[in-house]
Write a protein that binds this DNA or RNA. Structure first.
Lengths: 334, 334
DNA sequence: CTGAAAGCGCTTACAG
DNA sequence: CTGAAAGCGCTTACAG
């Protein structure tokens, strides 16, 4: 079956192709009767306009580009889930691009621009400030609207959606502190920018205000690596509580601590900063700051549609609410 | 900055736009000297051809469509990870479409076709046979190459990549059986098609050959739901071993069993059929059949490129090797 | 080996 | 309200 074109529809409805185009794009500009005729022909032929031709002619592809570092990470894939649900709803197609440490950032951006996306959702949270500037400059030069989706960078002029990671971590650190703990540790990755940087800042601020020294463990998301780190850590330190940037890291710590003879939460309390499925499958269940990733994705996409359509946006830097989910790895906080 | 077009390059290199097009698509057809001139201009201007215009003119978009049901599931996002790595390598762009239970399947397929993808990677594993036929017919009518990526359907004429789930499950069931266990249970979802159907078939075959009755638990991936099911199950049955279609279900079962006073693996052995990160974060570590999802994605994409380019393919239905990863939830098998 | 020209399937001023 | 025509940025026979 050859694809039906606008000519086929025009022929069937006995009008010109311009009229067919109008009923699809500006229905109010065409006489109701002819409109019905055309609609009928469209339906009968199962016609859908060729998105590529439409894109070239109108210079709008109704496509957004998503730039991720690693789609297989739980938080990333949930963000993308939120994005595509909303994109589908607003009839946008979604193109996926990956940009990791090894990628030539400039090359990736050239690709994205060449693909003629109408807007960009930037999810990569692992760029250093210089790389980030390069990327944003590229986007600005190409004049493509962009929303930073759970990818915090200080630049407030760029629209963004996230939660206030610094405040969230500050709050939960304070809760631990005001329950009487002093030896509160913080486990993060070696990557120092964006989200993990914010979380760390919140932790450090709370510790500093309490007159305590920050205890930072830089480790990996890889269980075989962080198991070694945590084993060592427990050997050399007295730990009353640990907050981890990722749930999987928190769970791994719990496992190591329990194996080493500690009781969670009796000897050590543990908090995760994501609230993924790991939290409910771990034993004990992990207390978490809940980060609404699906919503962040959905709201980002919604914001991007507004920007692309030049609708009024009241708030460019959206911070979604978060909450603390108390489970079994803490006992003194609420 | 207005985007540079092929005209700009032609102007800078003092050749016609046809020549520029040729150096990009058929470089061997142009004189080395002029080729160099053009290449230089391209580089200086940072030119990349407008993918949309190219797509319209050549009727090839170098874009593949991925159809998923739920991107946020661990297995799915890893498949997609494998796909985009290979796609990027072969210079294909990737468009993401979601098709879940509520979707109008025909409408989604129309979208995909309208987007003019050159090929389709179909990852949705949750369609019943009728829906599947509708989808495949639509694809066939549009004459778009397709590869079923970890989405098993009996139809052998459609290219596919997966592992032999039936054989894998049959093998591991037999191992449990030949270690002396008789009360081997099988936990799956309510969804009866494709992969989970194959796994079930392998389990049933092994049980039948051993002259034993199959014990099938249909539950949900939702922990709060399957916890209830498993609590009930343990109350009413004597269970020596349990195999679960998803790791998260296996881990949830382990948690329930331990809470109920059983010892894993001493009283009950447990096996997962995926080998995700849940397996190494659970306590005890979960023994798994390892399903190489990243590879399945990568190989699918590679196979699709061959089909799209009309290269010779020797095997249309690829089954990747799998292996059993022994950990701490089993003790008598090897 | 290179250029002029038609065409990919649409949109959008411009007339009427 | 409707149609004829130009144009979006490329590719690709067709001449030369």
């Amino acid at each position: 079956m050859a694809n039906t074109t606008i000519y086929d529809v025009a022929g069937a409805a006995k009008v010109s192709l311009a009229t067919v185009s109008r009923v699809m794009n500006n229905p109010e500009k065409v006489n109701p009767e002819t409109r019905e005729k055309v609609l009928k022909a469209i339906k009968e032929l199962g016609y859908r306009p060729n998105a590529i031709a439409k894109g070239l002619a109108s210079r709008k592809t109704t496509t957004v580009g998503i730039i991720v570092s690693d789609i297989s990470r739980a938080a990333t894939s949930q963000l993308v889930g939120g994005i595509i649900d909303i994109a589908q709803k607003y009839d946008y197609a979604v193109k996926l691009f990956s940009m990791d440490e090894e990628s030539d950032k400039k090359e990736v951006m050239r690709r994205v621009v060449a693909e003629q996306v109408d807007g960009i959702l930037f999810l990569n949270d692992e760029l250093n400030p210089e790389e980030m500037e390069l990327v944003l400059n590229h986007i600005q030069d190409a004049q493509i609207p962009v929303v930073l989706c759970n990818a915090c960078y200080e630049e407030k002029s760029i629209p963004s959606v996230a939660i206030d990671y610094e405040q969230a971590t500050y709050d939960v650190t304070n809760k631990l502190l005001s329950s009487g703990k002093k030896k509160v540790f913080f486990a993060t990755t070696t990557h120092r920018y964006a989200i993990n940087g914010r979380k760390l800042a919140g932790y450090e601020k709370a510790m500093k205000e309490a007159g305590l020294e920050a205890n930072i463990v830089r480790t990996s998301g890889d269980v075989s690596i962080n198991t070694l780190h945590f084993t060592e850590l427990l050997k050399n330190n007295e730990i009353e509580a640990l907050i981890a940037v990722r749930d999987s890291i928190a769970v791994s710590f719990i496992n190591v601590a329990i194996s080493a003879g500690y009781k969670v939460p009796d000897n050590i309390e543990v908090v995760g900063l994501q609230n993924t499925k790991y939290a409910i499958l771990s034993r004990p269940n992990l207390t978490c700051v809940d980060c609404p990733v699906y919503d962040i994705g959905a709201v980002s996409m919604r914001l991007l549609t507004k920007i692309m359509k030049n609708e009024e946006v009241t708030e460019n830097n959206i911070l979604l609410p978060y909450r603390l989910v108390l489970r079994k790895t803490t006992k003194d906080i609420k």
